[in-house]
Every structure is written in structure tokens, then in C-alpha cells.
């Protein structure tokens, strides 16, 4: 399943790059993130709690960043498992200056397993969109200098 989109962040390309590659930002901005531990540079383990109807529950997983092309593009690999199935994500995130702001393009191949499969086509993409939007909104707030409260349940 393809999952693609674009977000505008209020910040220079460099600032956005630094934020998106910073595990502390990832921890603070990932919806529902309960904990992020650094296993190795660019390699993390996460626990997140999602609160959206049929996929609500605690998900454990890992995330790895890499394959960087300058400060323009990087690859992200993530996989996780929760009460209703498994998910793995692989793809790229690309940054582009857009005036004073920065456009972030993401393109992921998503594989789901277990009960999640049955709802994937209809329900999962909208949920993924919502969570991604929530993530970038938080990053945007951080860039604007806000200090974020501890992560709430994703999707609430």
C-alpha cells in the first residue's frame, strides 16, 4: 500500500532537517509516543499508544533512519506490532525550500498484517493521514519555539 503526502513546516530547511532527524523531536511529536530509546545512532525503539476506535491499543516497534542524500532526503524504516496486527513502513522523506517555509514530501510503502489487513484499504490510510498531520503539527509548534507537553494518546 502506498502512503504519500506533503506538509508545509514554518521553518528553514536546515531547521526542519535537524528537527526531523532528532530523536528527542521524534519522541515528543510522534502521536501517542510513550517512550523512545536509542538502540544505536539513528536506530530507535518506540512504544506508542493509539486511541483511534478500532486500532486503539499499545504498539511496540522499531525505527531506523538512514540513506541520507545531503540534507535533502533521508530514508525511514519502521515496524511495529499491536493488538490488532503488524505494520511495516519503508520510504523516503524529502525536504524542499518553499520561501521561508519548507515543504516535506513523504512517500512510504506500508505493509500491514493480521486483523489490520481487513480494514487497511478503507480505514487505515485516513488514520495514517491523521496521525501524520498530528506529527507535523507538533513539529511545527516545536519549531515555533513552543515546549510540548508529554505525548498524549495518538489520535485524541
Amino acid at each position: 500500500m502506498k502512503f504519500e503526502g506533503e506538509s508545509q513546516l514554518e521553518g528553514s530547511k536546515d531547521a526542519v532537517w535537524d528537527a526531523l532527524n532528532d530523536p528527542r523531536v521524534i519522541e515528543k511529536c510522534t502521536p501517542g509516543c510513550q517512550s523512545l530509546s536509542i538502540v544505536a545512532p539513528d536506530s530507535y525503539e518506540l512504544v506508542t499508544k493509539i486511541g483511534i476506535a478500532s486500532i486503539s491499543g499499545t504498539y511496540k516497534g522499531s525505527m531506523r533512519l538512514g540513506d541520507r542524500l545531503g540534507r535533502e532526503q533521508y530514508a525511514m524504516f519502521a515496524e511495529g506490532a499491536g493488538p490488532i496486527g503488524t505494520m511495516s513502513v519503508a520510504g523516503t522523506v524529502a525536504l524542499r525550500e518553499n520561501g521561508a517555509a519548507t515543504s516535506v514530501n513523504y512517500s512510504f510503502e506500508v505493509q500491514v498484517g493480521g486483523a489490520m489487513t481487513g480494514m487497511a484499504q478503507r480505514a487505515l490510510l485516513p488514520i495514517a493521514k491523521l496521525l501524520t498531520k498530528q506529527f507535523f503539527k507538533s513539529v511545527d509548534k516545536l519549531l515555533a519555539g513552543a515546549s510540548l507537553p508529554a505525548a498524549e494518546e495518538g489520535g485524541t
Binding site: 489487513t117 481487513g118 487497511a120 484499504q121
Partner: peptide, 12 residues
């Protein structure tokens, strides 16, 4: 091909 069943309700 991974053995995942995609339609597990009566709308699919």
C-alpha cells in the same frame, strides 16, 4: 502473496 487475508468483513 504474504498470506494476508484482505477481506474479513461482509463489505469486502
Amino acid at each position: 502473496e504474504r498470506g494476508q487475508l484482505w477481506n474479513t468483513d461482509l463489505t469486502s
